[in-house]
Simulated scan of single mutants.
Amino acid sequence: MNHTYRLLKDDMDFFAAALSQVRVSVWHVLEDREHIIDYGGPVEAYSVVSIKIMGRRYFRNVFEFRLTLSKG
């Protein structure tokens, strides 16, 4: 499957996203569907438990974090 986004999973992914100040979106993914929770923004902080984006914290084990890839 060809995705137009990159899934952020480990600390290095979040560190790189925080340094480059790219927009990271937050998704809730179930077996049969997915929907966006927050269109996101830059990663402000991260820990083993949560990711802070635009002043809100999202649990890493509940949500999926995506970096949209440019098409050029």
Score class of each variant (00 low, 15 high):
residue 27 W to Y: 08
residue 66 R to L: 08
residue 16 A to Q: 10
residue 31 E to C: 14
residue 50 S to T: 09
residue 13 D to P: 03
residue 58 Y to D: 02
residue 44 E to H: 04
residue 31 E to D: 15
residue 40 G to V: 01
residue 7 L to E: 07
residue 72 G to K: 05
residue 63 F to E: 00
residue 53 I to E: 11
residue 69 L to E: 14
residue 6 R to V: 02
residue 23 R to A: 11
residue 54 M to C: 14
residue 48 V to Y: 07
residue 12 M to Y: 12
residue 5 Y to A: 05
residue 16 A to N: 11
residue 15 F to G: 08
residue 5 Y to P: 03
residue 70 S to R: 12
residue 45 A to S: 08
residue 52 K to P: 01
residue 1 M to S: 04
residue 42 P to A: 10
residue 18 A to Y: 01
residue 27 W to H: 13
residue 72 G to Q: 02
residue 42 P to E: 09
residue 19 L to M: 11
residue 58 Y to R: 04
residue 25 S to W: 03
residue 54 M to K: 06
residue 55 G to M: 09
residue 69 L to D: 11
residue 56 R to T: 08
residue 24 V to T: 10
residue 69 L to K: 15
residue 12 M to E: 07
residue 28 H to V: 13
residue 63 F to R: 05
residue 65 F to A: 12
residue 71 K to D: 13
residue 24 V to R: 02
residue 18 A to T: 02
residue 26 V to Y: 03
residue 5 Y to S: 04
residue 11 D to V: 04
residue 49 V to I: 03
residue 21 Q to R: 15
residue 65 F to G: 06
residue 13 D to V: 12
residue 26 V to I: 15
residue 4 T to C: 05
residue 10 D to F: 00
residue 11 D to T: 05
residue 52 K to C: 04
residue 46 Y to N: 06
residue 40 G to E: 05
residue 17 A to Q: 04
residue 34 E to N: 01
residue 8 L to C: 06
residue 57 R to T: 06
residue 41 G to W: 08
residue 69 L to N: 12
residue 50 S to H: 12
residue 13 D to H: 11
residue 29 V to G: 06
residue 39 Y to E: 15
residue 11 D to A: 09
residue 22 V to H: 10
residue 38 D to W: 10
residue 59 F to G: 09
residue 34 E to F: 14
residue 7 L to Y: 00
residue 24 V to L: 00
residue 62 V to P: 03
residue 22 V to P: 11
residue 60 R to V: 06
residue 41 G to I: 08
residue 5 Y to F: 05
residue 63 F to K: 03
residue 21 Q to V: 04
residue 39 Y to F: 03
residue 14 F to S: 02
residue 21 Q to S: 11
residue 41 G to N: 03
residue 32 D to I: 04
residue 42 P to F: 14
residue 25 S to R: 13
residue 14 F to H: 02
residue 17 A to G: 11
residue 22 V to I: 07
residue 17 A to C: 13
residue 37 I to T: 04
residue 8 L to I: 01
residue 9 K to C: 02
residue 53 I to C: 09
residue 40 G to R: 07
residue 69 L to H: 01
residue 23 R to C: 10
residue 63 F to C: 05
residue 45 A to V: 12
residue 57 R to C: 12
residue 11 D to C: 02
residue 35 H to F: 14
residue 30 L to G: 15
residue 55 G to S: 12
residue 7 L to G: 07
residue 31 E to V: 08
residue 64 E to H: 12
